[in-house]
Amino acid sequence: MHDKDEKMQSAYGRIHGLGSAKDGTGHWWAQRVSAVALLGLGTWFVYAVLIFTAMEPVAARDWLAQPLNSILLALFTLTALYHGQLGLQVVIEDYVHTHARKYAALVLVQFVTYGAMAAVVYAIAKISLGV
């Protein structure tokens, strides 16, 4: 039974949920998936910045208000913030060894990330929907 099961699983499926904390692989995978997404979204962001800087502020705001541009900007900023949170988490876990400081730093990064996400969503909604 064991052999058969293994053949039906990917390499990732075999190790998912293992290890002392049971979630290291999930973190690793989320970092890679968001990285792949950011290859495309980041390239669009460069294009958006170049378009934006070539325009007057009012015209640039209108350009950003178009549905596709609003959606792509939201996807880029949220994915990038998420990817950054995952990355900072690893850096903190690697270099901050005092228990209290480590968890304080991890919680701070979470709060700051979610705060920035909320701000970005609000800003894009307001620009796009004009509320």
């Binding site: 900023t77 990355g87 900072l88 850096v91 700051v112 920035a116 970005v120 620009i127």
Partner: peptide, 19 residues
């Protein structure tokens, strides 16, 4: 990566003021 994260916070603040 760390620098980019802080830049993203700046971008968030910039978008908020634009809006």
């Amino acid at each position: 990566g760390i620098a980019l994260y802080f830049g993203l916070l700046l971008l968030a603040a910039w978008l908020l003021t634009l809006a």
